[in-house]
């Protein structure tokens, strides 16, 4: 299957999937979700560098 528009792209790999019976999640999606949760938690707990107070 070689269209003339297919350049150097090879076939993409199968992908890594994690799962328990019936439920699977693709590694990329899992990472995105974990990153969002981490950012959410960090935004809550990390101290914010104090700005200059003004009256």
């Amino acid at each position: 299957m070689t269209g003339w528009l297919v350049a150097s792209v090879g076939t993409v790999g199968d992908g890594t999937y994690f799962g328990w019976d019936g439920f699977t999640i693709q590694s990329g999606n899992l990472i995105v979700i974990v990153v969002m949760i981490i950012l959410f938690v960090l935004a809550l707990v990390l101290p914010f560098p104090g700005g200059k107070r003004r009256k």
Binding site: L39, L42, A43, L44, F48
Partner: peptide, 14 residues
């Protein structure tokens, strides 16, 4: 050029 004093958290950058 200013914001209320409570606008001080990483929650505001997203």
């Amino acid at each position: 050029e200013d914001q209320p004093s409570y606008v001080a958290s990483w929650a505001y950058v997203f």
